[in-house]
């Protein structure tokens, strides 16, 4: 489902967080949002998820304004995948994934056969079906992130919003998780993902959205817009973009020069 954001402005107690953001994300695209801490990425995501009231401008998902949609209706269109953290409540993986289906249930309903089926399907998609009966506190951080993604798939929404899905993950797990994100975009999901690593954008994103001081300063394919000057502008750090020819193609990466 396409996301369309037009002239989005938001201020919080006199401070302008978003100062007119415009962009579109199409079905099948993995859009990576870059920007330093406090650039407005989280606020932007909250607006798209309908969690933030009081913004100006338009946020449309699949052609409807998020402010006109009910919670339930919104949940059927857009799912949120937070950073994985150490859980206090040790649910089984199955129960954790099942929670994604709650939007389809009535107030007093519990998940039934149909919901269990879609949870099983989601776990299968992410290769964690053998973990179904484990506790979420007992699996690795990478697996926990996959559980959160599976939960979003069980929610059955076409748009996935990911808040730094690779935070707190080790090097191997970062790539493992991102590979799944990429695969989901190829399957037709619209994926909007914030990341702190330009290399992740090079490797996995179709599109880069650079956010600075509440404005979009670059919007395009990583090859086109993600260069040394953009990294300098975003992070205030001098870096060099290099190309490495490998057997799977030419891969770009960043080397910091400071």
């Amino acid at each position: 489902m396409p996301i369309e954001v037009k002239n989005l402005k938001f201020s919080y107690s006199g401070h302008d967080v978003l100062k007119g953001v415009d962009f579109r994300a199409e079905k099948g695209e993995l859009v990576s949002v870059l920007g330093c801490n406090g650039a407005g990425k989280s606020t932007l995501f909250r607006c798209i998820l309908g969690l933030q009231q009081g913004f100006r401008g338009d946020v449309n998902i699949d052609g409807s304004d998020v402010r006109t949609l009910s919670r339930k209706c919104l949940a059927s269109r857009v799912a949120y995948i937070p950073q994985s953290s150490e859980p206090t409540f040790n649910y089984t993986v199955m129960d954790a994934v099942l929670m994604g289906t709650t939007g389809t249930l009535g107030m007093t309903e519990s998940p039934g056969k149909k919901q269990i089926e879609s949870a099983r399907y989601a776990m299968h998609e992410l290769g964690i079906e053998d973990k179904a009966d484990r506790g979420v506190a007992q699996i690795s951080g990478g697996e926990r992130q996959l559980v959160l993604i599976a939960r979003a798939l069980a929610q059955n929404a076409g748009t996935l919003i990911m808040d730094e899905p690779t935070a707190n993950l080790d090097y191997g797990n970062q790539h493992h998780v991102l590979k799944f994100c990429r695969r989901l975009a190829e399957k037709g999901y619209t994926v909007l993902m914030s990341t702190h690593n330009p290399e992740h954008s090079f490797r996995y994103a179709n599109k880069v959205l650079a956010l600075k001081n509440g404005r979009i300063i670059a919007d395009g394919t990583p090859e086109k817009v993600l260069d040394e000057s953009l990294i300098e502008k975003l992070y205030g750090i001098h870096a060099r973009v290099t190309e490495t020819v490998t057997e799977i193609g030419t891969i770009r990466s960043c080397i910091t020069m400071d």
């Binding site: 998820l49 309908g50 929670m99 709650t102």
Partner: peptide
């Protein structure tokens, strides 16, 4: 007792529960 499934979602925190369709 009737809404006990939803209690699971409350333990996740506001944003997550809301994004899954719960008020």
């Amino acid at each position: 007792l009737a809404m006990r499934w939803r209690m699971n979602l409350l333990t996740l925190g506001e944003d997550e529960a809301e994004s899954m369709g719960i008020n």
